[in-house]
Amino acid sequence: MYPAPIESLHGPTTIEEALRLLAEADKREVMCIAGGMSLMQAVKARVVRPEVVVDLNRLDMLRGVERGAGGIEVGSMTCYVDLAREPLLRDNAFAAISDAAARVGDRQVRNRGTIGGSLCWNYVAACLPAAALAVDGQLELLSLDGDGISSRTIGIDDFLTGPLETAREPHELLRSITLPDPGPGGGSAYKKWGPVTASLPVVGIAVRVIVDRAGACREARVAIAGLVEGTQRLVSVEEGLIGLSIADAGAIEGVFEAAGAEAEVQGDQWATEDYRRLLIREIGGEVTMTALKRAGKAH
């Protein structure tokens, strides 16, 4: 458990400088280090052997959360601890993000780990990819071309392409994640279960609902972490939740129970297949109730 030799480490202070370093990625193994909470483990275990490491920690312009025209804009280098404390992400349509960030890893990990790092790494049992998927995050990726810095925006559904895979090209830098405002009646939540406190989840579920004035769900996005195929949406649940409200706890659990029965789950030493299906029902039911309650307050 010690890193293989790294040729060079750079700490750019401007985005252009970072992109210039990343532009070498077609010729050599260039990797960004954000918080390093996943990458350093992979580097030390020699799962990856970057030749060039670009440390993003001096790019302060990539940190912070603000309200923009299209919703809440989150800088890619914003740490979990700051997301967990952020009033703009509390008890509302975006709260799945702060729910997830508040219980990632441990204090030392939350102090250092970032939302952008987690999304770009896209580990199968990570919390932030599921939370960002439920709240429909829109990612802005920067790169250098002949005319200077160019930018493209990609939805989280297209960004997360499979376990440890994303649509980010090696020369691209994730600048921000915009969480679109779903308007009145939006609420979201995230919850997980793992074998020890704040551990990687065996199952983690994020839900965003939009409710009508009567509190009935008219639109839902539901994402799950911890399945073998990686973080994904549960489309049958999204359809099944339409029309349900906080008065329908039993029916909501039923929708998740049916999805759990169909899901491809694999038992391991932490949880058997059956227990994972039970977790999908229990956590799904609970997290949906929280999202519905938050949504009800947003009218």
Partner: peptide, 24 residues
């Protein structure tokens, strides 16, 4: 990075020093 015995403060923030490169 699972035991926390190497925790130090980096700019006042508690971090595990086995997960930070020295030059950072």
């Amino acid at each position: 990075a699972v035991c926390g015995a190497c925790t130090v403060h980096l700019d006042g923030v508690a971090v595990k020093s086995c997960s930070v490169l020295a030059a950072q």
